[in-house]
């Protein structure tokens, strides 16, 4: 459904962020991209969103190649990035400008209700806590009913308690329409709590190191033995990805950039 084929990204300064990344994602799958800093996980997400372009390779959704931001793809950033001059309701309805006002209002109110923010529609973003703002930001991306939702470390700035509750909110929202969800995180617990598949990337240059299928049933019990085991497997892969020397997978000539 979402296909990343042989993605390479070399920045203008010569830094190679991604090297031949190929990932196939099923419709409705929840995939978490895990990796240490500098492994290109944010870059990968931005390529999928169409905000940046790959040096080579293609991103496609249902066979349609993505070159620029696309209506089928929603994006949630690390910071909430709400527009301060719009109310909470106007922020959520930002991508619904083409709809009649009444329809937009219903969708927004319905959305606020689902995340426990009913009655917050007329407030200003500055009046929200970090967790509330991020919930609004997720709603803004979801009300347009995208087929793919991309999230770039959306909960990393929140405390553990808020993070846990937002992960539950996210799963409930995801369950309503079952979009394909790609979430970048550096938190192993988050990956284990959410993922159908946890893909571990290795740094310098960014490559897929491991693709771990998580078969735990939902809702997941975070205190269970299986959950701990899942975390351990992901953690192990992450450790391995960080100690892995930057070897060229198939041809020695491609390592010209990393000789030093």
């Amino acid at each position: 459904m979402l296909r990343l084929a042989h993605l390479n990204k070399v920045y203008a300064n010569g830094a190679c962020a991604l090297d031949d990344v190929t990932i196939d994602i099923e419709a409705g799958e929840i995939v978490t991209l895990v990796g240490g800093s500098g492994c290109g996980k944010t870059t990968l997400l931005r390529l999928v969103s169409g905000l940046e372009h790959p040096t080579s390779g293609t991103v496609s959704v249902d066979g349609e190649a993505i070159f620029a931001p696309h209506p089928a793809i929603g994006m949630v950033f690390q910071e909430a990035r709400l527009l301060p001059w719009l109310t909470v309701a106007q922020n959520i309805g930002f991508g619904l400008a083409h709809l009649p006002a009444g329809e937009c209002k219903d969708l927004v109110e319905d959305a606020l209700l689902k995340v426990g923010l009913a009655g917050y529609g007329t407030r200003w973003p500055r009046e929200l806590s970090g967790g509330q703002a991020q919930r609004v930001s997720i709603l803004r991306a979801l009300v347009t009913k995208p087929k793919v939702l991309l999230m770039d470390e959306p909960f990393s700035a929140l405390d553990a308690l808020t993070r846990g509750s937002l992960q539950d909110h996210l799963l409930a929202l995801w369950d309503a329409h079952r979009p394909t969800l790609v979430l970048v995180t550096h938190d192993v617990e988050e990956a284990a709590a959410l993922a159908d598949r946890a893909i571990v990337l290795q740094p310098r240059p960014g490559r897929v190191f491991a693709d771990i299928r998580v078969e735990l049933p939902r809702p997941r019990d975070r205190l269970s033995q299986d959950f701990a085991e899942t975390k351990r497997i992901i953690m192990n892969a992450l450790d391995g990805s960080l100690s892995q020397p930057a070897l060229s997978k198939n041809n020695a000539g491609a390592t010209a950039g990393s000789w030093w």
Binding site: S49, L51, A68, P69, H70, P71, M75, F77, E79, R81, L83, F94, G95
Partner: peptide, 11 residues
């Protein structure tokens, strides 16, 4: 620029 990018993401 981060807010401008929101505009880009919404095409």
């Amino acid at each position: 620029r981060k807010i401008v990018e929101v505009g880009r993401a919404f095409r």
